[in-house]
Nucleic acid binder design. Structure first.
Lengths: 338, 338
DNA sequence: TACCGAATCGCAATCGATTGCGATAATTGA
DNA sequence: TCAATTATCGCAATCGATTGCGATTCGGTA
């Protein structure tokens, strides 16, 4: 490949020592060299089209200016905005993100984790957290810098940035009971994730608080198919008078759509459905989905901010950030039929 | 961060020279060292939890085992599958992808391009091509390895992998005329992209071939808003008896949906709409979108394959790959009203 | 027994940038 | 005018792995 201009080349052209060139070109050390020579070096560098070799620099400084981002699956629509949020904070600061998928497999997660470590990433942003996360525990023991995003993990002291899930569920309930719903089912996310636990817990609490009859249906994954399967179970059984479903996320809600359609029911006339996340295009589904908006872009940006803070001051306190949420009412919720 | 085990540590434990450890651990040079020592070294490496330092290796070998992927905007739903396709080929071969967005700006494209070069990427996969692409021309001159994906560029001899757009348009027409449509408008993608040019050209040819009356409406971008704006122009003007629109891509089609709704028209009863790409969730829109499927996953995988081929044999011929497409008929097309 | 080629493995240079240390030159202060 | 700073900048080690070259060892052959 191209780019074969080294420090030494610039030094030769400028008639100075490579070390001086290095100092002249770095903002932090620029004051250690005469202003005139700085100009001379700058000119030589520009003339030759010099770009520093990141690997050589990284080898010496022990910093790759790279962070690893571990997501379950980039094709889940909540992640691209999150990745862009991460980039929005990282790139202006000279960092790059290496994004890898795990497809929910602990084994591939471990593999990619190690391979990112070998690439000397300066830290991780992981969106694959689950409640008892061995890898994260080990990482902490090894002194690896990590920020959890979207999901949290128990037992590790890593900073985490999440949405205010409890508040989101509460707002859903306020909306739903105002619409007259009194029997509500919850398509709970798969076990082992903090998001699932918190939302289900909030669901139960809200049932109590608003005195509605609740039922929770477990799902096997945060996916359309899993949502459909869980909803099928409800719809295939005896009607129990439920008029609304709050899904663990938008994908599950979409699965509920499918199941309803398959059972000849129409949303929201026969059944109101609420999602969670307000993923891209949620407003273009049929019907447009009522859901809870969380800014995954902000989530990513905030996670990146926390990680860089850790990198620059490793002993800084590991705080947790909870992002605001807001209910966005669209067409998948309607007054309960009497 | 963690991982402070070096070759020298392993060598010390195994009682051999670092060079020997290096050879023992690499598949290519393993045969240069005694089988017994290989075992001894392997054991020592495992015991210490040794992982090679990718930066040190890269510095010496001039290979970062990293490729740069340049996309306009990762939140455009066609790109995540493409990135996953790229990863699916790259990761098993020890490569990683650095994905960056340009937001359609030539300037930021240049910036990220340079910064990826500084990171010593071994090559690029670029999805931001346009017909007269200065940066790509320069890259070629500099000897940078590139594979174009989705879009092609004129005047550069880089391999490109695209969908068979012409065939896709032709299939759309076959479907539409079978439905009785004889006046069709084309929401053409923005000027300057090979996809726009090819699809528009194919549209005109198909009009000829199927003897339908066509009209092409230019758009300013491949976005929902641009699609809506273009469609507004048609719908705000005098009715001309058009009964179907073939959009340059799914986003434009979605914009057409919005415009139709705004004008009190319903798709497909009042107007059939066809998209292009079959992006994720296209079947969940309202109405479910009839569109042309292109496997962006395959597209990415194929691009990665071509790039690695170039890397390993830089003088190999730069062929172009055209991927098959297929029409998927859903709910946004219906027989033309008389 | 002497010699030869092959199999192993150590030595040291190298990739390109950073940085502590020290030398030299320029400047300040008395 | 001279000593004491201070500003500049060169020197060389260093980061960790790879690899051409040469040295040593060993089995085999004449």
């Amino acid at each position: 490949m191209a780019n074969r201009v080294t420090l030494a080349d610039v030094a030769a052209l400028a008639g100075v020592h490579p070390g001086t060139v290095s100092r002249a070109l770095s903002a932090k050390t620029e004051n250690q060299v005469n202003a005139a020579t700085v100009r001379k070096v700058r000119r030589a560098a520009k003339q030759l089209g010099y770009t520093p070799n990141a690997m050589a620099r990284g080898l010496r400084t022990r910093l790759s200016m790279t962070v690893g981002v571990i997501v379950p699956d980039l094709t889940n629509p909540i992640f691209p905005p999150m990745v862009r949020g991460i980039d929005s904070y990282l790139l202006p600061r000279g960092y790059s993100a290496l994004v890898v998928n795990t497809d929910g497999s602990d084994e591939t997660e471990r593999t990619v984790f190690e391979s990112l470590l070998a690439r000397q990433v300066d830290g991780f942003i992981v969106a694959t957290g689950h409640t008892h996360h061995r890898l994260m525990a080990e990482a902490q023991e090894r002194g690896v810098l990590v920020v959890m995003v979207n999901r949290d993990a128990h037992g590790v002291r890593y900073p985490a940035v999440t949405g205010d899930d409890s508040l989101g569920i509460k707002e859903i309930f306020a909306h739903l009971v105002a619409l007259g719903h009194s029997r509500i089912v919850h398509l709970a996310g798969p076990a082992g994730f903090s998001t699932s636990e918190i939302r289900e817990e909030a669901f139960r609490a809200a049932c109590e608080q608003f005195s509605v009859t609740g039922r929770v249906l477990p799902t096997s994954a945060y996916s359309i198919d899993a949502g459909q399967a869980a909803m099928d179970i409800l719809l295939d059984g005896p009607a129990e008078g439920f008029t609304a479903v709050v899904a663990g996320n938008d994908l599950l809600a979409l699965g509920a759509y499918h199941s309803l359609r398959q059972h000849g029911m129409v949303c929201p006339d026969d059944m109101s459905v609420v999602g969670f996340n307000d993923m891209p295009f949620a407003g273009d589904f049929f019907p447009p989905m009522t859901t809870v908006r969380v800014s995954h872009f902000d989530m990513g940006a905030e996670a990146a901010r926390l990680l860089l803070a850790q990198i620059e001051a490793p002993e800084s306190t590991a705080l947790a950030v909870r992002l605001p949420v807001s209910l966005v009412v669209r067409g998948s919720t309607a007054p309960a039929k009497r």
